[in-house]
Design a protein around this nucleic acid. Sequence first.
DNA 1: CGAATCTTTGAAAGACGTCAACATTGGTGG
DNA 2: CCACCAATGTTGACGTCTTTCAAAGATTCG
Lengths: 238, 238
Amino acid sequence: MNLVPNNLPNSCIDCAEISNSAFEILSENEINEISKYKTCFQFKKGQILFDEGSMLNGVFCINKGKVKLYKLGIDGKEQIIDISKEGSLLGFRMLLAEVTSKVTAETLENSSICFIPKTPFLKLLSTNIKFQGGLLKIACQELGIMTDSITNFAQKPVRERLASILLVLMGTYRPKNHIDGNIEINLSREDLANIIGSATETTIRVLREFNTQNLIKIRGRKISIIDEKGLISIARNS
Amino acid sequence: MNLVPNNLPNSCIDCAEISNSAFEILSENEINEISKYKTCFQFKKGQILFDEGSMLNGVFCINKGKVKLYKLGIDGKEQIIDISKEGSLLGFRMLLAEVTSKVTAETLENSSICFIPKTPFLKLLSTNIKFQGGLLKIACQELGIMTDSITNFAQKPVRERLASILLVLMGTYRPKNHIDGNIEINLSREDLANIIGSATETTIRVLREFNTQNLIKIRGRKISIIDEKGLISIARNS
DNA sequence: CGAATCTTTGAAAGACGTCAACATTGGTGG
DNA sequence: CCACCAATGTTGACGTCTTTCAAAGATTCG
């Protein structure tokens, strides 16, 4: 596990993802100030940022890459709660609720991720009501997303859940400034199954079915969506 | 639906639930100030506070009673996201995320619930960083609870989910200052099924089974827990 | 008391997970 | 660059859990 610290870009103001993050709300001066405390790390695929049950002394912000957040459930089966992408802030719930992490954070690809220590982060939060308000808004939005997610898990069968998640992942895997054309979802079948909460085999079977029905196109492990409307209609259970 | 406005207690400072609410963090003066804007209503069982998809001009705070929050899923089946009790603040997510409500809020019993209009509430929030921080902490805790909830739905079968929910409901239905003895859960079988996301008949069958195994005691619709440890062991899937 | 609602039970069909075997892929060292 | 191994992906058969549908009991409340 070689963590290569790398402070480029020097200030978060130059980060391509700033407008996409919780820091967007800050002034240039405020961004430069908090930037002083950040360190940017290069993570390889499969590295753990923090473990379920651990207490972290700061937060991570994704500059480039993807991170899966999961809990271990029955028989050690991962339940993936979220696939975070560029701009996401990780670990702030645990700092704010003053509890150990509910999830493990693991990179899904080689990623560039910054770390901001607890002290300056909490200071910013306790002195800047706008920033705190922005974070509160983000938390409320996530609560809304989880509300939908619970309803899906509780009521929808695997086929609907898979269609629904593929549509969400299309957003997660859409390249920046993407206009048209293919979006390729690049996840193992097992991860996919661990998002929708099914057996890997079941997920594969339904994927094959979607492929046959020309809703998606499977190339190796890569999945691209062909018929978005068709998937929406299945996800809606109609 | 006759809403009987009733401003007693005059200030939230006299509310028995204040120490149990988001307002706990405020000073006496601040509580008195926000109290000026609140109105207390008496709701009958089954009344709707706000509907899924609606936009509310304020927040509710439960003084006495219980409220179920649900989304309508497939075929109009309710998915109950939460049973809120005394002290809970309802509707703030929708104000903060600036979206329409994800859920419908309906009273489960005759309840006394206060309404605070949007303007003074948002003003308090934008001028009092401690209060905002308290709300942020609450939101983060709820995110943690929902994370667990998603894992349960995704991985645990009905028996485990039911055992798990009964334990949670024991807390919800524990009377104030309760020391020992019986806690009676008073919910329809259908509501119970709509919490754990199963068919009503399945819920009934598993309840009967728990009853036979002396884990719970069923008296009419009322359920009391006899063997807490036994239920914990089932909920843990072990 | 009686209508309406809620609860309970049974039987049958369907969805999904598990297990086992086999195919494919990607990465590694020779 | 190739051969090989381990990890990942795929398929089929089977059993179990859960839902659905139908109908009968129990409760509640006006």
